[in-house]
Simulated scan of single mutants.
Amino acid sequence: MFRIPARVRAIPRSRIIRRAATIVTAVALALSAPATAHAAAADPHHAAPHPLPVVISNLQNWVMGILAALATLFLVLAGVYWATAGGDPAQVERAKGALKNALVGYGLAVLAPVLLQVVRAIVGG
């Protein structure tokens, strides 16, 4: 089995957490910095906003994607809870709750086009 060296075990946990947080923050800042050297010049011909049907279609795609991603996350959590339950009834109930949330999320993702079609009909787009 893998053994942690004594010099690593001697480092306080808060110091390790601070180091990890510093590294994660530095990487996040480096990845989120805008790449101005590669930025394209603004095109004045595409400055007009999109028409309402295009906006609603884009919104539909975003909502479906977010709901499907969240539902998949809950489905994975339900599987992990169920696999690690080990016969614990409370953990099994937690897994069933996460599974129900995943099913609701998938249901909403399927119904998102219908709901946005209703919005489109109400708005007149």
Rank of each mutant, 00 (worst) to 15 (best):
residue 1 M to E: 10
residue 3 R to P: 05
residue 4 I to G: 04
residue 5 P to Y: 10
residue 6 A to I: 07
residue 8 V to C: 12
residue 13 R to D: 08
residue 14 S to D: 13
residue 15 R to F: 02
residue 15 R to A: 15
residue 16 I to Y: 04
residue 17 I to E: 08
residue 18 R to P: 01
residue 18 R to H: 06
residue 20 A to K: 05
residue 20 A to T: 07
residue 20 A to L: 14
residue 21 A to L: 09
residue 23 I to P: 00
residue 24 V to L: 10
residue 28 A to I: 08
residue 28 A to P: 03
residue 28 A to H: 02
residue 29 L to C: 14
residue 31 L to E: 05
residue 32 S to D: 09
residue 33 A to Q: 06
residue 33 A to M: 09
residue 36 T to S: 06
residue 36 T to P: 01
residue 36 T to Q: 07
residue 37 A to Q: 15
residue 38 H to Y: 09
residue 39 A to F: 12
residue 41 A to W: 06
residue 41 A to P: 04
residue 42 A to N: 08
residue 44 P to F: 11
residue 45 H to Q: 12
residue 45 H to C: 06
residue 45 H to R: 15
residue 46 H to I: 15
residue 47 A to Q: 15
residue 47 A to G: 09
residue 48 A to R: 12
residue 48 A to N: 12
residue 48 A to L: 08
residue 49 P to Q: 08
residue 51 P to T: 14
residue 51 P to S: 12
residue 52 L to F: 11
residue 52 L to R: 11
residue 53 P to C: 14
residue 53 P to K: 13
residue 54 V to W: 00
residue 54 V to R: 00
residue 55 V to M: 14
residue 58 N to I: 05
residue 60 Q to I: 05
residue 62 W to K: 12
residue 62 W to G: 15
residue 64 M to S: 03
residue 65 G to K: 02
residue 66 I to A: 02
residue 67 L to W: 06
residue 67 L to F: 12
residue 69 A to Y: 03
residue 70 L to N: 07
residue 70 L to P: 02
residue 70 L to H: 08
residue 71 A to E: 02
residue 71 A to V: 05
residue 71 A to Q: 01
residue 75 L to N: 10
residue 77 L to R: 11
residue 79 G to A: 06
residue 81 Y to A: 13
residue 82 W to I: 10
residue 84 T to C: 05
residue 85 A to H: 01
residue 86 G to Q: 14
residue 87 G to A: 04
residue 89 P to M: 03
residue 90 A to N: 04
residue 90 A to K: 07
residue 90 A to L: 02
residue 92 V to W: 02
residue 93 E to L: 13
residue 94 R to W: 04
residue 97 G to T: 07
residue 97 G to S: 13
residue 98 A to Q: 03
residue 99 L to I: 01
residue 100 K to P: 00
residue 100 K to C: 01
residue 100 K to M: 02
residue 101 N to I: 06
residue 103 L to V: 07
residue 104 V to I: 15
residue 105 G to D: 10
residue 105 G to K: 06
residue 105 G to Q: 05
residue 107 G to P: 11
residue 109 A to P: 01
residue 109 A to Q: 02
residue 111 L to A: 10
residue 112 A to C: 05
residue 112 A to V: 00
residue 114 V to L: 12
residue 115 L to T: 14
residue 116 L to D: 10
residue 118 V to P: 05
residue 118 V to H: 13
residue 119 V to F: 01
residue 121 A to K: 09
residue 122 I to F: 11
residue 123 V to G: 00
residue 123 V to L: 09
residue 123 V to D: 00
residue 124 G to T: 07
residue 124 G to W: 03
